[in-house]
């Protein structure tokens, strides 16, 4: 049971047999443009309707929903795909709310929604630690600090710069073109290489050796690895322990530099935010 259970933990282990079998041909089709354009139209309608008329708002929401339904048609029929798709929908909804809400606090809440669902997606990608860290850093620290600054700026009432957007039609057009380009680049045939062994970072490797390509061999190998808990090339990139090992071996200097950057940023923030003294002004 444990043998099969390890590789059939289908919710988290994305490298399981089903998802390996579910690779399909590159599936770029021009119908993919439809949900993108619908989404852009929905964004424009919602951002206008929120100021002007409820009817426009409803039309925009309908357009966004239609876009979501269209997108669902392109999904592979697996449970994973639908769970991730739900998270994507919530995140996109939060993003649209962030883009269109006129009250800054509501916009910040939309951003929090988007980031929290993004954390769910990261979790589904078996990046547990990054998901937790993102949740703490973004949804915890960043949002709270942003709300503090919002309160500091004392927005009792809506200002002109909250209500008016700079040229939303042009920005929407640019975003649409960007989105279509990204979708084409990502989904056309051979857009990114298949899995390969990268041996430049030894400790970061989580791939199986060449001789363990069959399913039974994988299961046996991983079971042994788990029981003996050896170091060395890992098996699946989903253990936080492996991530830590990779961070503090292959990327030790990068971690140190990141810590230094954090320290410098802290000092800089304090230096910038303190009130200028009279001596500095003269």
């Amino acid at each position: 049971m444990w043998n099969t259970g390890l590789w059939k933990m289908s919710l988290f282990a994305q490298t399981n047999a089903e998802s390996l079998a579910s690779r399909v041909e590159g599936t770029w089709a021009w119908t993919m443009v439809i949900p993108i354009i619908l989404g852009a139209a929905g964004y424009l309608l919602v951002q206008e309707g929120i100021v002007r008329h409820k009817f426009m708002l409803g039309l925009g929401l309908v357009s966004l929903a239609a876009s979501a339904v269209f997108t669902a048609l392109f999904l592979p029929p697996t449970l994973d795909a639908y769970i991730v798709f739900l998270f994507c929908i919530v995140a996109t909804g939060g993003g649209v709310g962030f883009l269109t809400a006129r009250e800054p606090v509501y916009a910040a809440l939309g951003f929090a929604t988007a980031v929290l669902s993004t954390c769910g997606i990261l979790f589904m990608q078996s990046a547990m630690f990054v998901a937790a860290a993102t949740m703490i850093v973004y949804a915890g620290a960043t949002i709270i600090i942003f709300l503090f600054v919002l309160m500091f700026a004392q927005q009792t009432d809506l200002r002109v710069y909250d209500i008016k957007l700079t040229n939303p039609c042009l920005a929407g057009a640019i975003g649409t073109v960007m989105m279509i380009t990204i979708t084409y680049c990502v989904t056309h045939d051979g857009s990114f290489p298949l899995r390969k062994v990268d041996s430049s970072r030894l400790m970061s490797e989580a791939l199986l050796p060449e001789e363990l390509q069959s399913e039974e061999a994988k299961i046996e190998f991983s079971r042994q690895k788990l029981q003996s808990a050896e170091t060395g090339p890992g098996i699946v990139p989903q253990t936080t322990a492996g991530l830590g090992r990779s961070l503090y071996t292959d990327y030790l200097i990068a971690v140190e530099l990141a810590g230094t950057v954090l320290l410098v940023a802290t000092i800089g923030a304090i230096a910038l935010a303190t009130k200028p003294t009279a001596e500095a002004g003269s």
Binding site: Q14, S19, S22, R23, V24, E25, G26, T27, Y43, L75, P76, D80, A81, V84, F85, C88, A91, T92, G95, V96, F98, L99, A114, T118, I121, Q125, P168, A171, G172, I174, G175, M178, M179, I182, T183, V186, T187, D189, G190, S191, F192, L194
Partner: peptide, 24 residues
């Protein structure tokens, strides 16, 4: 031949990036 899940993730990442760009 593409991994469909990776593809979907990349498209969604592009969506989030575009939304942030439009917001900016």
């Amino acid at each position: 031949m593409n991994d469909v899940m990776t593809q979907n993730m990349l498209v969604f990442a592009g969506l989030l990036f575009s939304a942030g760009f439009v917001g900016f």
